[in-house]
Design a protein around this nucleic acid. Structure first.
Length: 439
RNA sequence: GACCCCAUCGUCUAGCCCGGUCCAGGACAUCGCCCUUUCACGGCGGUAACACGGGUUCGAAUCCCGUUGGGGUCGCCA
């Protein structure tokens, strides 16, 4: 029988990074097995659902390349894929339990008669988990499936949908493990075998606390939302690669690997059972690796939203190897697009404090004016020749020159930078720097 | 409080199922050196872990029990 898995988010607020990882593992398993990845929107909480949030979910999944086979914008034979449109189905299933005497009404709500004997969850990751009842459940293990306002609750609709949508494997966060006996009992009450379960460990904050979008600490709240990574200039293939490594490993010491390799190697039983902490530093490293390795075309495409129209391929090509986050781009490139760039005081102090700086820069400008062809080789030859004539190390010219034309002490190779800047601007900037220093 | 899950360097992990090849391997971070026009990249090297206590065994990171610590669940939230 063909594998059918699903990702079932509720459209309330931002997309949680933990949810994204759950979606990713479902997607990986579907692609690994040649199965079907279903996207179902659990929008039963009308008060909290927003259209905006739905967009965020769909865009987030697309951004990461997690395409779904059935669901919103896709359709499929088990629709509708919004719970808000499946009320009739739920009503029918409630009726079924009521008629069978497995559910009953009390205080306006409909409750499910939970079996009194413990239920074992055969979990593909955690093993067999038998949960004894918590002391508060001891008096009354039954639970509400339809509220007094007539709306069915999560546990119920979740099971009904998984059943109707013929889901074969439920891959979800470990926070659902303790509730799974309820779900299994429901499946059995409907006379069907429950799907296979795989509860994946949680992703925690760097300090080991739970990741929450509503954490009072804004730093942690930001960490929990996928949007943050998009805004900061992480690239989707890096985020996806990093997420794969949280709770799963190719076991061959590779850290960076193509998604096709992950799909091929991925399987449920080898997922780790322990929670993992989110490590921004490692994500950032992976991000830089991906940026360096990607084509210039891809880089420009991803960089565009961050550079405000300044997407000159020559400029971006110069900094591609330097950038860790796309958000840094304006910082690396702004002096290519404006003459009004800031001077880093530290850089000025460090590189331009020699008394001969002005004289040297003037001579450098004069020399550059005579260069025949303004390219890397010509620039380098001219600069080195001047340094030799002056009897100074090339660095004595290079560093002040860099600061003069860019305002910074760090940047691309100087010769390449000057070439892209163009002779006119370089000369103007060198002379302007000299004037500046005289004031 | 009850119940469930988990426990290898600061972090992610390999090894654990099928005890010996592990005085525990890789990566990020960190420190030092090299390369170098800057910053990165790259290269080389260092610091750094089997939570603790009992067993079982000739032998335990690997199996068992307990303790501690972390996480989760016990809603007419999802």
């Amino acid at each position: 029988m063909s594998v059918r898995v699903r990702f079932a988010p509720s459209p309330t607020g931002f997309l949680h990074i933990g949810s994204v990882r759950t979606a990713l593992f479902n997607w990986l398993y579907a692609r690994h097995t040649g199965g079907t990845f279903v996207l179902r929107i659990e929008d039963t909480d009308a008060a909290r659902n927003t259209e905006q949030s739905l967009r965020t979910i769909l865009d987030g999944l697309k951004w990461l390349g997690l395409d779904w086979d059935e669901g919103p914008e896709k359709g499929g034979s088990c629709g509708p894929y919004f719970q808000s449109q499946r009320a009739d189905l739920y009503r029918k299933r409630v009726r079924q339990l009521l008629d069978a005497g497995i559910a009953y009404e009390r205080e306006g709500a409909i409750r499910f008669k939970m079996p009194r004997t413990p239920i074992t969850v055969p979990d593909l990751i955690a093993g067999n988990v038998t949960r004894e009842l918590a002391d508060r459940e001891l008096q009354d293990p039954d639970f509400v499936i339809v509220r007094s306002d007539g709306n069915p609750v999560f546990h119920f609709v979740n099971v009904v949908d998984d059943l109707e949508m013929k889901i074969t494997h439920v891959i979800r966060g470990e926070d659902h493990l303790s509730n799974t006996p309820k779900h299994i009992a429901l499946f059995r009450a409907f006379g069907v075998e429950p799907p296979k379960y795989a509860h994946i460990p949680m992703i925690l904050n760097p300090d080991g606390t739970k990741m929450s979008k509503s954490d009072p600490d804004p730093q942690k709240a930001r960490l929990a939302s996928l949007q943050t990574y998009l805004n900061e200039g992480y690239v989707p293939e890096a985020v996806r690669n990093y997420l794969c490594l949280l709770g799963w490993s190719p076991k061959d010491n590779r850290e960076i690997l193509p998604i096709d390799d992950v799909i091929r190697l991925f399987d449920l039983p080898q997922i780790l059972r322990a929670n993992a902490r989110f490590d921004l530093a490692k994500l950032t490293w992976i991000n830089a690796e991906y940026i360096r390795a990607m084509s210039l075309e891809r880089f420009i495409e991803l960089a565009r939203p961050f550079v405000g129209g300044h997407d000159d391929p020559k400029v971006l090509g110069l900094v591609k190897e330097k950038v860790k986050l796309l958000k840094e781009l304006p910082d690396w490139t702004s002096y290519f697009f404006t003459d009004d760039y800031p001077f880093d005081p530290e850089a000025v102090k460090k590189s331009c404090s020699a008394p001969q700086t002005s004289e040297r820069l003037t001579k450098l400008a004069d020399r550059f004016a005579t260069v025949n062809s303004w390219d890397v080789a010509g620039i380098e030859t001219a600069l080195k020749a001047l340094a030799a004539e002056l009897g100074v190390k090339t660095g004595e010219l290079i560093h002040p020159c860099r600061v003069a034309v860019s305002g910074k002490s760090a940047g691309p190779s100087l010769y390449h930078m000057l070439e892209v800047l163009g002779r006119d601007r370089v000369l103007a900037r060198l002379r302007r720097a000299v004037d500046r220093s005289k004031k």
